[in-house]
């Protein structure tokens, strides 16, 4: 069954991948072991899980300005999410996505995106159209 979710116009290219979802927040500095490509902050709901090639779906972005450079650095080593979807992005993550050409969208019309998409869903993200399609089935 296909489900279409409208969001704000985002950044980056159209991508398809498998969702990794949590009702939690995101900072590349605070939450990740970027060498291993896993969440490393013990208090994070995705701690221990790999974000490599995933469509990350989280609530909001937290913390420091470093995340902008870090997305670019992660992308250069290809140990990186395919896209990140937020309920609300902060400015830093959007700036990092713009430099890294990483796909990012936020502000979903149908409510909390961490509830609308489940871990394991196959998802197509089209930032130019502001459209995320869940193609399970």
């Amino acid at each position: 069954m296909t489900k279409e979710l409208k969001c704000h116009k985002g950044i980056g290219e159209k991508v398809q991948g498998i969702a990794l979802v949590a009702d939690d927040n995101f900072s590349a500095r605070y939450d990740l072991d970027r060498k291993k490509g896993v969440f490393s902050r013990p208090a994070h709901k995705l701690c221990g899980q790999s974000y490599h090639d995933k469509i990350l779906v989280l609530n909001t972005s937290k913390g420091g300005v470093a995340s902008a450079w870090m997305l670019h650095e992660m992308k250069s080593r290809n140990i990186c999410p395919k896209a990140i979807l937020f309920n609300t992005a902060n400015t830093i993550l959007a700036q990092g996505a713009a430099l890294a050409n990483l796909t990012m969208c936020d502000r979903f019309e149908d409510g909390d995106v961490t509830q609308l998409i489940q871990t394991g869903d196959e998802v197509i993200v089209d930032p130019e159209q502001g459209l995320v399609t869940v193609v399970n089935g």
């Binding site: 300005v65 995340s67 902008a68 450079w69 902060n90 400015t91 830093i92 700036q95 990092g96 713009a98």
Partner: peptide, 21 residues
Amino acid sequence: NFEGGPSALAAGLTGRTPRYG
């Protein structure tokens, strides 16, 4: 706004920043 490194550099180069936030 919080200007991550790339955006701060862009602002330094153009002398401007997008008017949001």
